[in-house]
Simulated assay, not measured.
Amino acid sequence: MAKKQGKQTYLMQQCLTVRAWAAVGSKKEGQGPLASGFDLIEPDSTFGQDSWEKAESRMVSLTVAKALSNAALTYEDIDCIFAGDLLNQCVGTTFGLRDSGIPLFGLYGACSTMAEGMLLASLLVDSQTVRRAMAVTSSHFCTAERQYRFPLEYGSVRPPSAQWTATASGAVVLEEGNQPPYLRAAAVGTVEDLGVTDQNNMGAAMAPAAAATLRRFFADTNTSPEQFDLIATGDLGAIGSQLLVELLQRDGIDIKSRHTDCGLLIYDRQKQDVHSGGSGCGCSASVLGSYLLPSLRDGKIRNLLFMPTGALLSPTTVQQKESIPGIAHLVWLSHEKEGIL
Rank of each mutant, 00 (worst) to 15 (best):
C15E: 15
T17V: 04
V18S: 06
V24F: 09
K28N: 13
G30F: 06
D50W: 05
E56S: 13
S57P: 01
A65C: 05
L73E: 09
G84M: 07
G84W: 01
G92P: 03
G96R: 04
D99T: 08
G106K: 13
E116W: 12
L119G: 08
L123W: 11
S127W: 10
V130I: 11
R131D: 10
G155P: 01
L183R: 07
R184N: 10
A185N: 05
V188R: 13
V188T: 12
D198G: 08
N201W: 02
G203H: 02
A204G: 10
P208S: 15
F217E: 09
T221W: 14
L236D: 03
Q242G: 11
L248K: 05
G263Q: 03
L264Q: 06
L265V: 02
Y267P: 00
Y267V: 00
K271Q: 12
Q272L: 10
G277K: 05
G278D: 03
S279C: 13
C283E: 04
A285R: 05
V287S: 01
L288Q: 03
G289P: 00
D298L: 14
L305W: 04
P308A: 11
Q320E: 15
K321V: 02
P325M: 09
A328E: 07
K337A: 14
E338W: 11
E338F: 14
